[in-house]
Structures are given as C-alpha cells and as structure tokens.
C-alpha cells in the first residue's frame, strides 16, 4: 500500500474562492520514501501539507495518509503523522525539555520510550535542555521542532520548508538526519525552495502556482530535458548574458553560478556560437557541455 495517495486535490481561498492555491494535484508516495515538493514561496506547498495533515479541508478531490482518509479519518491521521510547520510553532516560554515532554504526553508516550528515534538529533540540543525554546538559535530551534514532530514515532513525517534560511552546513546535516529516519521506515514528505536539495530525495515533484509541473526521480526529471545546454563564461558576465539572449540559435540563456547556461535550439553549433560571441567582443571565453540540473528543468517548465 502507498503511504500517501493524493487524487485531484484542490484548495481555493477568498470570498468567491477566486484564489486557487492548489489545483487538481495528484501523486503517490511509497513507504519509507523521501518525497520532495520543490517550489518557490506561494507555490501552494503549505496548503497541500495542511490538507494532508488534516488542518485544512480540501475543496475537491481526496487523499489518504497511511490508509486513512484525510476528511473522514482525520483523528486517526493526527495520531500517526508528524508535522513540522515552516514557522517555528513550539512554546517559546517552555524549555527545550518541557516542549518535548509536552508533545510526548499529548501523544500518550514518553521521551524514554522513543528516545532511540530522536537520539541523534536531540543529543545536539540536550546540553541546552533547560533553556527556553524562544532563546534558541535558528539551527537549534529546527532540531527541537524535528524532535517534537518525531516523539510519537509517526508513520509519515511532513516537513514544511525545514531548511529555509538555514546555512549550507546546517542544511547538509539536516538531510543526513532525514536519511537516517528513512532507514527507520518513516515516510518523509519535505518541501523546499532549494533546487539543489532535490537530488537528495528519492522522488520529487516540481510545484508552481498550485500545479505540479512534473513528478519523478531526480534522474527522470533531468533526463526529460532533451536539448543541449552549453555552459558559457567570459570576462564580463553581464554583457555575455545580454549577447547570449540576443542570439537566435539560443532558446533561453540565464545565469547559473560560474557559467551562464545557454539552452540551444536544434541544429545549432557550438563553433558558430563561439564565433558570434568573439565577434561581440567577449574576452576569455569558455564554452562547455553541461548536464541539465533540476533547476534547468524547473526553469524550462516554468517558462513553458
């Protein structure tokens, strides 16, 4: 049985339901899978998570989590899912330990009983267990929130943008923690605006303006990008980008770290591009073949 099944789920807001936050979304997630929902702010990720965790009713469509319907069986779902909202929502005026105890008690369990599950994460904040949650740094708050979401040993874990605003080192550590949870058999749905985190998921879906643009393994998604991408750099990158966008054999060109990416039309040649760019006066020109990334795929799907 699939851990999460979503069929044509929609959510609208506003007096006349004119704001369509989630539009006809369908996907499945397998047990112990890390499923990433990749999309910018306002894509509808939070509305989707809130429906699946029974905090919000859908306008149409249906979904089940671990075999329970999100509308009819909402009480059952609340017992077996863990949810870490994007905004820190623990009790700021309770200590680290008090917060954890509180959530354990609500779910009729104890910290001791499930300590093995949270140990790796909690051990890092345990030295500060008497500190009020409101006084913790961002990274420590995140670890406490994850510990609280796990303390009742959920079957499915929902993490809404756990790494937004978190630096690159803490982000890597966080993803290592998720891998260990997966090994314990927990299904994880995680949303993120960082495209580079997509590669760390088993499967992903790209979400934009309430719709899913594409769903599959990261390799499937990048594999569906059939055009050639050339990485181009030159002494003046800003002028180079303007020249690339003015070239008719290029479908799209955009900045991409050290190199600009140029998506080539069919039958275009690298030599012709080189000649054109040299004629335009670009110095220290380097052109190389680039393998499409998730971000390239996302950019193409967004613009099409």
């Amino acid at each position: 049985m699939q851990s999460v099944i979503v069929n044509n789920l929609s959510k609208n807001y506003g007096k006349e339901k004119e704001i369509k936050a989630v539009k006809d979304v369908s996907f499945d997630v397998s047990p112990a899978e890390i499923f990433g929902i990749i999309g910018p702010d306002g894509a509808g990720k939070t509305s989707l998570f809130r429906m699946l965790t029974t905090l919000l009713l859908p306008d149409s469509g249906n979904a089940s989590v671990d075999g329970s319907d999100i509308v009819k069986d909402f009480k059952a779902i609340r017992k077996k899912v863990g949810y870490m909202p994007g905004r820190f929502s623990l009790y700021q005026d309770l200590s680290v330990e008090e917060n954890l105890n509180f959530f354990a008690t609500i779910f009729n369990t104890t910290i001791e009983k499930n300590y093995d599950l949270i140990k790796d994460i909690y051990i890092q904040i345990e030295p500060f267990k008497k500190r009020k949650a409101g006084k913790l740094s961002g990274g420590m708050k995140q670890k406490l929130a994850l510990s609280c979401a796990l303390i009742h040993r959920p079957v499915v874990l929902f993490l809404d943008e756990p790494t937004t605003g978190v630096d690159a080192v803490s982000r890597k550590e966080f993803w290592d923690m998720l891998k260990r949870l997966k090994q314990q058999g927990i299904t994880i749905l995680v949303s993120t605006p960082y495209m580079d985190e997509a590669g760390l998921c088993d499967r992903i879906t790209l979400m934009q303006q309430g719709k899913l643009l594409s769903t599959g393994t990261p390799t499937e998604i990048t594999g569906s990008f059939k055009q050639t991408i050339l990485g181009v750099k030159a002494a003046n990158m800003y002028d180079l980008l303007k020249d690339l966008n003015a070239y008719n054999a290029i479908e799209d060109a955009y900045a991409f770290g050290e190199y600009h990416h140029a998506v080539m039309k069919e039958n275009s040649s690298e030599e012709a591009l080189q000649k054109y760019l040299e004629e335009k006066g670009n110095k220290e020109l380097v052109i190389q073949q680039i393998k499409p990334t998730i971000e390239d795929s996302f950019l193409r799907l967004m613009k099409s």
Partner: peptide, 20 residues
Amino acid sequence: DEPTGGVDPVTRREFWNLIY
C-alpha cells in the same frame, strides 16, 4: 540581507539582473 530567500528561480535571476 538575503534578498532572494524563497524566491523562484526565474525571479531570482531577474533580481540579479537588477543588481548588475
């Protein structure tokens, strides 16, 4: 200060064009 956090990849690039 972190001007592009959470912004979509297309807009992120448009933002950098403004910076340039």
